[in-house]
Design a protein around this nucleic acid. Structure first.
Lengths: 388, 388
DNA sequence: CGATTTAGTCTATGTTGTGGACTAAATATC
DNA sequence: GATATTTAGTCCACAACATAGACTAAATCG
């Protein structure tokens, strides 16, 4: 049920409207803000004043609208004060980044570690050290970090900050937020979801609209962005593309089912045991038939799974990330063909397959971006508590 | 982007908050409304006064909260003035219903006609006559009908009121809203979507939360309700369960693909040509092996498709409607087994399969219910234009 | 019958956005 | 170069709305 609207909610809402306009429509004068938001110039001036006081917006330069008339003062999001911390725990690395309010990446650090060999608490301690270092550096830049989100490779309970299972790490029910114990609010989220958001804000998302982002690693996850927000399903477990049934009589999968996409297009199905993706790409570039055949099979299977995804959730575009980004030239053709064959007659337009532009840091960046998104959606909460 | 909040928006929003509380939390006193909404008693009294003046709420009876104290006057949604018209065009019938603001079905009329034999304009003219009769009867009951939605068996463009394709009717790009030309706002929507909403408001939806509603007919559609609202995807074509790939090497489907669910569990795959569902059920009840085998195959295929749907969109419950409602006893077992086998290891809880409680009128009722939903979500718009 | 409890209304008040007048700063025109 | 015109932004009186708390109303308990 919608919340009751009181005067403070009205003000907070309008603050968010102005900030969102600055975020999406780029730098604007007060007059242009009044025009796009529908508020009066008076109100916009007051709100912009508050945002500038809070360090969330700055004046910078002037422009004229028409041929003559007084030039307007350009107002833009300020990246000088407010920032967010993005963290990621994955199988073979830890990552952290600091992103400012204007979604500029200010700091980014990756640490190669084999996290399967360490206990959850050791891994989290190490991530805590990485995060603490980032916070110190951010403070040195004059940034005040409002919050953090940790990207985790498995289904999470966002309300408790716990990861249910992370099969590739061998984790079960680890209370990440709690164990991390940083001096700011820490949330958790699923890696595939955050990678989709990373693509939205740091990749080609701005020109994309609604899209499905496939983040293939050992498992294959997907994040669906509709109207600038993640679709999470009833329990937050939506987007398990890896276990979509490609062939009901196919080989058994570790999930208990048979013929899941993962068995055809997961990392383990493509690469030799222990092989790096770069080596596999090298084999492909050398034209090795067995590697090409594996990609063809993976692409077709992916096409079938994506056909099903399109029928069920109707994305506008499909972005291939994770290992599918370097493999795009070999995988996209068969996938697209399978989709066109199955969808061409029913739909005027088959969703385009495009390659991710963010790469390996998608989830880390998406995590920080999501914190920024929350601030922009409710700047009032931040204004009232400028402490953190 | 969120809308700018002005004083009138604040009032309209709070009106909606109060009305929604009356709709969901049942009849309440003004004091209880103030408690649940977070508004003050003064504000609630004013808003309730407006709603009563508009004929959207009524006082009825008194209750005491504790052991003593002045009894409160119970306020409830009024079904006496505001109502909505739901319409449906399907292959072999037309249907219309009038539902009042309290979501009580006041009128319901079905007309058996073979719409495949008639031209779109003839069908729509006939529906117009049915609707006009309903409007007259509604007026006789003192009801003022705020708007209508037409349920159509195919993908629609809701902004133009057009149905793109309705394969089973043989229609292409028919401007239904325009041709219908009723003296009230007419929108269109997809039958499967509206059937899901029908289940939400007129079936077991109240106890259900988030669910996927499967409406099997000749084609198989699905509507996903999350947080009380439909998930539509980027272009409004989400929920095409019928063309989810069950077996990539299966028999060809009219969509151009192969091994779609529709080929295993669609009406044409189960019933003899020309057979009625009732006759098929009779054969099942008589224990005819070929009928039972067909249901087994259909159930397994449905289970595979639903497994995929659960992996991608994560519903809490799955409601089987359309032809699957009468076939539930024969279909649900195999479907549930297939789902449990494939999902059991990954999820703590496999979504429950339940039978639809609404039946054939789900889409028609859902159409009217959706109009009511729009009124409750924005009563201000209705108050300003109490004419219609 | 008075004390207590709960419901609902009334009134003065505070917060917020509005509309139009006003000031500011530029170019165009004569 | 003076004046008109145009656009940006601020100021101020005002209107809309919700609020807080006093007040009235209507019930039960002792």
């Amino acid at each position: 049920m919608a919340q009751a609207l009181r005067h403070d909610a009205m003000r907070a809402g309008n603050l968010a409207v102005v900030l969102a306009a600055l975020d999406r429509r780029g730098p604007l004068t007060r007059a242009a803000l009044a025009e796009t938001t529908g508020l009066t110039k008076t109100t916009v001036s007051k709100l912009v004043g508050d945002l500038i006081d809070a360090g969330m917006a700055v004046e910078s330069g002037t422009v004229r609208d028409g041929e003559r008339g007084r030039p307007g003062v350009v107002v833009r999001l300020s990246g000088h004060r407010v920032a967010a911390l993005g963290l990621e725990i994955n199988v073979d690395y830890l990552a952290a980044c600091v992103v400012d309010l204007s979604r500029t990446v200010r700091l980014l650090r990756t640490q190669a570690v084999d996290n399967r060999a360490a206990s959850p608490s050791d891994v989290i301690t190490r991530l805590g050290e990485l995060a603490t270092g980032m916070l110190a550096d951010a403070a040195g830049l004059g940034l005040s970090v409002a919050g953090a989100i940790v990207a985790l490779p498995g289904p999470v309970d966002r309300s408790t900050g716990t990861v249910h299972r992370a099969p590739n790490l061998g984790w079960r029910d680890v209370a990440v937020s709690e164990l991390l114990a940083l001096p700011l609010p820490v949330l958790v989220d699923n890696e595939a979801n955050l990678a989709a958001l990373g693509e939205l804000w740091f990749g080609s998302g701005a020109t994309l609209g609604d899209f499905l982002h496939v983040s293939g690693e050992i498992g294959i996850g997907a994040g669906l962005v509709i109207d600038g927000a993640l679709f999470r399903g009833a329990h937050g477990f939506a987007g398990e593309l890896g276990h979509v049934v490609v062939s009901p009589d196919g080989p058994p999968c570790r999930c208990g089912g048979t013929g899941c996409l993962e068995r055809y297009a997961g990392q383990d199905a493509l690469l030799h045991p222990g092989e790096e993706i770069a080596d596999f790409v090298a084999r492909l570039k050398a034209g090795e038939p067995s590697a090409e055949a594996a990609c063809g099979r993976a692409g077709s299977a992916l096409g079938i799974a994506l056909t099903t995804a399109v029928n069920l959730i109707d994305p506008d575009t499909i972005v291939l990330g994770g290992i599918f980004a370097p493999l795009f030239p070999w995988v996209s053709g068969p996938a697209e063909e399978a989709m066109r064959k199955r969808l061409g007659q029913m739909r005027a337009r088959v969703p385009a397959l495009v390659v991710s532009r963010v790469g390996a840091d998608a989830a880390t960046l998406g995590a920080a971006g999501q914190v920024i998104q929350r601030i922009i959606a409710d700047p009032g909460a931040f204004l009232l508590d400028p402490q953190r």
